[in-house]
Design a protein around this nucleic acid. Sequence first.
DNA 1: CTGGGGCTTTGGATCGTTCCAGGAGTGGGG
DNA 2: CCCCACTCCTGGAACGATCCAAAGCCCCAG
Lengths: 351, 351
Amino acid sequence: MSRVSGSSGHAAQSAHAGSPPTLANVAERAGVSRQTVSNAVNNPDLLRAETLVRVQQAIEELGYLPNRAARNLRTRASHLVGLRLSPVQEGTANAAMDRFVHSLVWTSREAGYHVLLFSGEGPDPLEGYDDLLRSTAVDAFIVTDTYLGNPQATWLRERRAPFVAFGRPWGDADAQHPWVDVDGAAGTEMATRHLLDKGHERIAWIGWRKDSRIGEDRRSGWSRALRERGLSTTGLASRVEDTVWSGGEASAVLLDEAQPTAFVCASDTLAMGVLRTLAERGLHPGRDIAVVGFDDSQVAQVVHPGLTSVRQPLEEVAIAVVRALEDLLGAPPKVAEGLLLTPTLTVRGSS
Amino acid sequence: MSRVSGSSGHAAQSAHAGSPPTLANVAERAGVSRQTVSNAVNNPDLLRAETLVRVQQAIEELGYLPNRAARNLRTRASHLVGLRLSPVQEGTANAAMDRFVHSLVWTSREAGYHVLLFSGEGPDPLEGYDDLLRSTAVDAFIVTDTYLGNPQATWLRERRAPFVAFGRPWGDADAQHPWVDVDGAAGTEMATRHLLDKGHERIAWIGWRKDSRIGEDRRSGWSRALRERGLSTTGLASRVEDTVWSGGEASAVLLDEAQPTAFVCASDTLAMGVLRTLAERGLHPGRDIAVVGFDDSQVAQVVHPGLTSVRQPLEEVAIAVVRALEDLLGAPPKVAEGLLLTPTLTVRGSS
DNA sequence: CTGGGGCTTTGGATCGTTCCAGGAGTGGGG
DNA sequence: CCCCACTCCTGGAACGATCCAAAGCCCCAG
């Protein structure tokens, strides 16, 4: 047999092999049984040191790696976690999602998992879950859009499908599944305090409609911070759609009617609207009026004076999610828990 | 056996079953052999109509779906495609990537594939490919960062791993793999013509360093459009890093030295720098000076007067990539081809 | 010398599916 | 009446790994 020099330090022979080496191939080469090779891979402690070395050498020489399908079949586990990409919402939320996905993929890798993306077609939030679950394609799911009043959670629980949620179970207090979330209220509270410390006293809020749990949560941080200092919130809050235009309109009205010196917004998108209004009126963000957004999106980083924004610790969220996943899939599964992480404030020119 | 009423119109019994139903279960219930059930699923034509109905009914009643691992093992295919997320480059490129991933997941679903994400740890562009390939976890890869002089392409070809590239094989003309790319030059040419049609004659270019193939390609579209109208390009081009600051600096210098009335940029990030400079000088984008970016990112949509930008048809790219994938994995595999798509121009306030 | 216990290693069965070769039933032509 | 072709269906083997029970080996106490 001719040898191919492996440049990357990896398997030498597998490069041109017709089909990948199997356990049996390794076993034959090492002069042991299949089971021994399997043990060398999964339970090295069981082998005599001498044998282990011999087997490992054979593995190295052949460039053996266990066939995933076979292993999955036997162990009834795929080491894949499913993540559903919500339907096209080319908005701010997407940007955060992107960061989260990156972190998640990264963290999962360390834990021996891979992330399988799937998409729901229509508005049906269950779309896609069913097939993957029934075909045992994934070990667990990661559910992200819990603001929907999470029908997924209910559905998945009924099917006894393991899953971890990024987002609190807003509706039911006695949800049984593990979840991780970012304390939005703490974020806006931090943002508001930051402005208070800068001397602002009339700080306005622009958020989402009242039926948004997340929106109301973030709003509560703002009002809490103000009341803490004995300041009133009346007339200083506005609830609108999450668009630049809405943010602009709302801030225009607020400026006219309540003369705030600063704005805290439920999203960077809304904050962009505020910046636009300020520009139209010849006001300078950061100098004349302070503005704080939420999510620390790309936009916040590149817009003119820089937009101060609440940043979600998505890397930590990912780590916590994966940890919860491991607890969940481990034997025996640990009890489900919720974890609330605190965001940080990225200060830029707008404040 | 008690019946559970299935609310979603799906499997009735599987909801509370300990383990999912198998082929054998269905076969028993339908009074046929395993193989017949298998045929009912994969080759319905082989069955007598009557039998087919009976089997399908049993499948429906049990909520049967083939076990993925077993099928993968037997057919030596996973119906998964691997997509590597590049190391954290929290920049503009990311945003485009995000849109692409969405489209890809969506399109893959239709073709019966799922997208498996993985991440390379360090700068090594091969990181992660090897394991997935050797363990036969994915059927093919989708390679996106071909600007690296694609060592992946070379490596994957050596291993005979099927893959489709999003991005031209810039280096070697005789690359054997299928690829899909967006004609950046056509995009900037379109953008430049758009400005020419608006009456601009001194149109500047701000792009990336000369060693960027993509950057030079985009630049060529600009210069082609100018020369076409007999206009000179000398002194009107600048090549810098892809940062807001660089874009700002470059535009400041160009404004001083060449008095352009419009800017075409290789990225939205650079365009944002131009907008900043204009703001500092009290110039109004779209009225005094026109600006066009590239990628039609989130930023372009929300920034003040709106940033005109070249938009890549990523949905079409995804479709083409998946089609190429199907050709590649089909039997017999079709010949590899390259496909160049044309971007569009999203016109906004900045021009 | 025998037997028990710990440490290693082994062969067979199994996971759930698809491939393969062949069997049962039907109908038509010689 | 026989044989062949055709349609439809079946049982056994295979994919490549892990689980399980048990066998071989070695050493020491009885």
